[in-house]
Nucleic acid binder design. Sequence first.
DNA 1: ACCAATGTATATCGAAACGATATAGAACGC
DNA 2: GCGTTCTATATCGTTTCGATATACATTGGT
Lengths: 172, 172
Amino acid sequence: MLDFAILGLLMERPRHGYEIKRSLAQLGFWTVSFGSLYPALRRLDKRSAIEAAEGTGRRKAYAVTGGGRELFASLLAADPDASETDRAFQIRLAFLSQLPQNERSRVLEHRRTKVAAQLKSAREIVIEARSSTQQPDRYRLALMEHAMRSIESDIAWLDGLIASERRVSQTA
Amino acid sequence: MLDFAILGLLMERPRHGYEIKRSLAQLGFWTVSFGSLYPALRRLDKRSAIEAAEGTGRRKAYAVTGGGRELFASLLAADPDASETDRAFQIRLAFLSQLPQNERSRVLEHRRTKVAAQLKSAREIVIEARSSTQQPDRYRLALMEHAMRSIESDIAWLDGLIASERRVSQTA
DNA sequence: ACCAATGTATATCGAAACGATATAGAACGC
DNA sequence: GCGTTCTATATCGTTTCGATATACATTGGT
């Protein structure tokens, strides 16, 4: 999970820990804690997927190794099965350019199906709550409605991505 | 965190594990795993914040104890400091009715301040990315823009809550 | 009436991630 | 020159996760 993201970032260029943390946050999906980051780096180092390059001073820059590249490629191309996390999808998306066009659509469509299911159940929950005899706490209703709307906006966003994907593949 | 949510749910009525899981998901904020849930129940039991009521068959219903009520109240009223998690806020909100009106506004305003800061940095990131010479990967840009829009919609939602809070306190 | 599939329910394991905190050099302000 | 903030790595204990095992209950088809 975190390993996947780290490898992806290191594929572009060597980075040291703190920089990985910053990049992760800038990609808009994660403010990872030090308690996750440094153990992850050691994990990857142990598997020799990464190696410490130029230990200039106290900053340890890490670079991805050959094995690391292979590992990353297999993670990226892996079947985005039903149990894919939100975060896993985001990471996959951030590196989606590295996948051939037809596979990209598959990843997006697959995600759409999953989120559509989430929307269905979120809607049912809201409808149920609104029509309940003893109508629920207003804060909770707000919570449920907001959750529903967030999913709706996720779907709209995904549809935009899918549409632009189709446009690109037609031009090409 | 999870303990907080469990206590809140058990304050209303005794529930067994599976039901807590379902309620948590319905409140729109969490599909907690069994690997979190059952350890959490045992944790709370050990602290005697909850106790097993009527062990009818294989379902163990848990009820909150006096100590548990105290614990919950202190968690709910605790200072929503800067490090408050998204989830912690959501849980707090789900049980906000149990807090006096003036404290409710404080919780909401505090949250707004925090999310506003998030929005600021998200906007900076998007602006920076868009104006960058080597403009970033389109998928990443989409990711960043979506993150930004999500935060914008969170703020709008919070403002709605704050406004309705004011309306209520004026009528009262 | 039988049995397969699905739903309800509790439990546990190892791994991953979290939040807090410690430490310390570097850069900056005044 | 001295305090504050920023950069950077590290570790500790706890929480949460995801996968998996198990078993009874309910429902639907034939």
